[in-house]
């Protein structure tokens, strides 16, 4: 049993690398989509809303296959792009909700000081939006980590795949699956704990989300 642990460990690394890559990709794209949807002109706004709807409505597996078979990418890159667009769509909707919950007066006050719209978004709206979205982001992080397992379907050798390989040799599915489950719990739980520290660090008195 011991001699197979390095294999599992390799899988964990791939899972974490994959999860982080597409989570960050999704974070960046999600921000852009949200801002485009709220502040863009009619065309941009509609496009962003459409993007968010499509990628929230499609099964992750379908998006994965479209990238993998459609663009001839490496499994890892296809997984990052496909799962990244999915989480981007979800994250954009948290961000959009957060922006819309920020009082309109904040934008007006920034403009009255002579800030351009872009600067007001970056300096005044986004810092508030990101704080308001943190609890949702931490939830989305857990989903992201769990979604990495879907990359298995296009041949990324992440932890679940490594596990399956070991099972074919050792014929002890339950032991291996339980170890894998515990590893997932540690990664998701550990990450949400770290994010809760971040939330505490950036907390502003009186500016909390009533949840």
């Amino acid at each position: 049993m011991i001699e197979y642990l390095p294999g599992l460990f390799r899988g964990v690394i791939v899972t974490i690398k994959l999860g982080f890559s597409f989570f960050i990709f999704g974070f960046v794209v999600g921000n852009i989509i949200a801002i485009g949807q709220v502040y863009g002109n009619k065309f941009i706004s509609l496009f962003c809303a459409g993007f968010a709807w499509v990628f929230r409505s499609l099964p992750a597996l379908v998006i994965l296959y479209l990238w993998y078979f459609g663009f001839n990418l490496s499994p890892f890159l296809a997984a990052v792009l496909a799962l990244g667009l999915r989480t981007a769509a979800y994250q954009s909707q948290f961000f959009r909700g957060a922006i819309q919950s920020i009082a309109r007066g904040q934008m007006t006050a920034a403009r009255s000081l002579g800030m351009s719209k872009l600067r007001a978004v970056v300096k005044i709206i986004m810092p508030q939006m990101l704080r308001l979205s943190l609890p949702y982001i931490s939830n989305e992080y857990a989903i992201t980590i769990k979604d990495t397992s879907l990359a298995f379907a296009i041949g990324v050798v992440e932890i679940l795949k490594e596990g399956r390989l070991i099972i074919t040799v050792l014929h002890n599915p339950m032991d291996i699956f339980m170890i894998i489950a515990v590893i997932y719990l540690i990664i998701t739980r550990g990450g949400t704990y770290l994010l809760s520290l971040l939330e505490k660090h950036y907390r502003i008195p009186g500016f909390e989300i009533s949840n």
Partner: peptide, 22 residues
């Protein structure tokens, strides 16, 4: 906690490939 903290695919594998060993 268990079902929310682990991937659905892993749960599916546990039921389909794991439970037969029990």
């Amino acid at each position: 906690e268990f079902f929310r903290g682990t991937p659905l695919l892993a749960q599916l594998f546990i039921i389909y490939y794991g439970l037969p060993s029990w």
